[in-house]
């Protein structure tokens, strides 16, 4: 698996993992995104910060194809995927998690991960049931282990604690051979201990897998990324390293909400 990714990386050369040019999204007359231009290198880990309504989740939805931008182009490892349906982008190695867990509550943890593995395999339409030692089932088990959910693997997802559901969200995004991940507030509603576990999972990802993370919690966000993009009212407001962003007076004023409080 790792070699396949290395081959693809060398084949793509120095092409950016994500390349957004002038992405704009209108909901009726409301501009949720205005002229967003953004590039992220392969393996780069980037946080997107911003207040509620800054357009962070809309941006993620446009990148994964949950819906299409009104204008602009989106390239994924050099390929123009602007008009691709979501499943085509996923099959090319893009993955995401959702802000509010979108899981299959009636199925077991293992079946949830199994579905994720199936989605990026060739057996999607198979009428043959998985047998002992089935490679997909094995990789599903490995993922359940990777996000520390072995103990509840056979439990129905609806019975899981919130924190465990967030961990499962991450497992679904890691299925198959991901090349780039999008995390939408993975730490939302987690306890401090669970946050620590999440940071450990994020930091244990292979270094060639880059990601974009939306996160309100600076403690989580700034501990796992090397660059930060700050969004405000559907536009990109600032870009820089975590240290630059943290010390920027304009950012402090905006992000800490002084202007809004006034």
């Amino acid at each position: 698996m790792a070699t396949a990714i290395a081959e693809r990386l060398s084949a793509t050369g120095q092409v950016n993992a994500l390349e957004l040019r002038g992405v704009t999204k209108y909901f009726g007359a409301l501009a949720a995104l205005s002229d967003v231009t953004l590039s992220v290198r392969p393996g780069e880990r980037r946080a997107i910060l911003g207040s509620n309504g800054a357009g962070k989740t809309t941006l993620l939805n446009c990148i994964t194809g949950d819906f299409f931008p009104t204008s602009g182009t989106i390239r994924f490892f050099g390929e123009d995927v602007t008009t691709f349906p979501a499943h085509e982008r996923i099959r090319r190695g893009l993955r995401r998690t959702y802000q509010i867990s979108l899981l299959f509550g009636g199925l077991s943890v293992l079946d949830n991960v199994y579905l994720a593995c199936l989605g990026v395999s060739r057996g999607r339409f198979s009428f043959l049931r998985p047998r002992r030692g089935d490679p997909l089932l094995e990789s599903a088990r490995a993922l359940v282990h990777a996000v520390h959910l072995d103990a509840v693997a056979d439990k129905k997802v609806a019975e899981l604690a919130h924190g465990q559901q967030r961990q499962l969200e991450v497992a679904l995004a890691l299925a198959g051979a991901p090349r780039f991940l999008l995390f939408d507030e993975p730490a939302a509603g987690l306890s401090p201990a669970e946050r620590g576990e999440l940071v450990a999972i994020l930091n244990s990802l292979p270094s060639h897998i880059g990601y974009v993370i939306i996160e309100h919690d600076m403690d989580v966000a700034l501990r796992v990324v090397e660059s930060v993009t700050l969004m405000h009212e559907g536009r990109i407001f600032k870009e820089g390293t975590p240290a630059e962003i943290e010390s920027d007076p304009e950012v402090q004023e905006l992000y800490l909400g002084h202007r809004h409080a006034a």
Partner: peptide, 26 residues
Amino acid sequence: VARAPFGLALQGIRDNARRMAALGFN
């Protein structure tokens, strides 16, 4: 078929079509 990959995926689509698309299913 209900317990085969095809049927499992169909039940996934029933419960959450958007997520299934985000897992690579057409």
